[in-house]
Nucleic acid binder design. Structure first.
Lengths: 157, 157
DNA sequence: TGTTGACTTAAACACGAGTTTAAGTCTTAA
DNA sequence: TTAAGACTTAAACTCGTGTTTAAGTCAACA
């Protein structure tokens, strides 16, 4: 049996956040003692873990509440729960792929600034007589990166 | 030269969002025509791209505004801009790694529900006489996954 | 016996990230 | 010339995600 404070420490969040989640329907399974205090059972930790995962994945609280409702409804919703997680997995995959793209762009901009720092000015990317045209797309960047690699080895991303 | 509407279409956001960003200091470089309308120049698109990347990476607007201020300050801030992007890259890497962990957990839960659907009940994961103990950590899951693989090939994640 | 410390609630507050509204300007096409 | 359509602003509003506050209950310890 865990108190709200125990869970707060375990998950590294505030007790007020837990109460907020409870109000929003994320914790219909928690029981209370005679004094009305929340008592988390060992098996409740399985729910907590799923909630934590969905939260970290960026799923809005009301959507998590929907999933939890399915969980409480019994074996009849098993397939629906699977399908929900399947959809969520796809969304998370897309999200990660998108962040990877941002990472690529960030690395390109680091290269842009690294070469600028070395030249002492950002203008090396503007002057028409250098080969360092400002590549805008990632494809153009890869190309420019290859070309720059050939000329001098300024780059170690 | 692009109008605010052109940029909105290009970035697939609303014009009110663009005006909001402007108010918050993300667009100090945009000039106006005689009537006070924003005119985005070709080179402004480079800024727009960086802003878009940082936004998608989850950087708060006020932090982006800080970076843009550095950009406007000239070559003296080149190193600082590089360092900023370096820090941002590290944060993004951490974020992606964290989402990967959530993805692993989500796949485990999909396995949990897939096997439950096949069994017709979630209880296969509770009964002590089955080998399908509810694995809580990812390590335990990997272990259970291996064991389950050995017994029957229920799993194709 | 009283005073901490951990819990409870409802209601108010905060904050980021926009959106909506109301009132006005400017261009263009009928 | 007037109506539509794209722009402008400031201010108010919404929404999600909590946090804070105020008032109260309960257990344990000095």
């Amino acid at each position: 049996m865990y108190s709200i404070g125990d869970i707060a420490k375990k998950m590294d969040i505030s007790t007020s956040a837990i109460r907020f989640y409870d109000r929003k329907g994320l914790l219909p399974f928690v029981e209370r003692d005679e004094a009305g205090r929340r008592q988390f059972k060992q098996e409740d930790l399985n729910f907590i873990e799923v909630i934590e995962c969905l939260k970290k994945s960026g799923v809005p609280v009301k959507d998590i509440a929907h999933f939890i409702r399915l969980c409480m409804a019994g074996d009849g919703t098993l397939r629906e729960r699977y399908d929900y997680l399947d959809k969520e997995e796809a969304m998370l995959n897309d999200k990660i792929a998108d962040l990877q793209d941002q990472l690529d762009f960030l690395r390109f901009k680091k290269w842009y600034y690294k070469t600028s720092v070395q030249a002492g000015t950002e203008e090396i990317h503007f002057l028409p007589n250098t080969r360092m045209v400002d590549p805008k797309t990632h494809a153009e960047y890869e190309e420019a990166r290859q070309q720059a690699k050939d000329i001098h080895d300024l780059i170690d991303l």
